[in-house]
């Protein structure tokens, strides 16, 4: 029973830590974009991707959380016996996206907010700003891929 609890906590952390990061990141970029839109509403389309980009980490965290739910059979109600050792394995597998999602989303939000400032002044600069922001995304993706392979590699049951 203890193993199941630890595994669920791991899945939950993947979702809420990456989610916290994304909400801070999107919040920052969204505030900056609203500042620009209060003066130039026509720039909404140019700002949109820069605001939305930091939201991806929360989605990655959700994907890993969902994988944990399926792995534990929580959706169909067929929950295998999970030792504490297996629970800790699942918990550890969730950590790459939990932490990389949290930190990369906050920093990506900052890059996006700065990029919004540039895009507000120079037409066409939003794509260049987006490329810098996308570089931060790499590390969230690495976290997602690592968590995914670790989870799929863990064998449960007897």
């Amino acid at each position: 029973m203890g193993g199941l609890v630890v595994a669920i906590i791991g899945g939950a952390m993947a979702v809420f830590m990456a989610g916290i990061g994304s909400s801070i990141g999107v919040g920052l970029a969204g505030q900056a974009a609203n500042g620009v839109l209060s003066e130039s509403p026509e720039k909404f389309g140019r700002m949109f991707l820069l605001v939305a980009l930091s939201g991806t980490q929360g989605f990655y965290g959700f994907v890993v959380g969902f994988l944990v739910i399926i792995k534990l059979g929580l959706l169909v109600g067929e929950i295998p016996v999970i030792s504490l050792y297996q629970g800790l394995q699942i918990f550890g597998a969730c950590m790459p996206i939990a932490f990389s999602g949290l930190i990369s989303a906050i920093h990506q939000g900052k890059v996006c907010a700065a990029g919004i400032g540039v895009a507000a002044k120079q037409p066409g600069a939003e794509m260049r700003a987006l490329i810098y922001a996308a570089l931060v995304e790499t590390y969230a993706l690495l976290g997602l891929v690592t968590s995914f392979f670790l989870l799929t590699g863990i064998r449960l049951g007897s």
Binding site: G35, V36, S38
Partner: peptide, 17 residues
């Protein structure tokens, strides 16, 4: 200072003018 995200966005749009 993250509190200034909105203000800086607004100022950036104003600087163009």
């Amino acid at each position: 200072d993250n509190r200034y995200a909105y203000a800086v966005g607004k100022i950036r749009a104003k600087e163009v003018r």
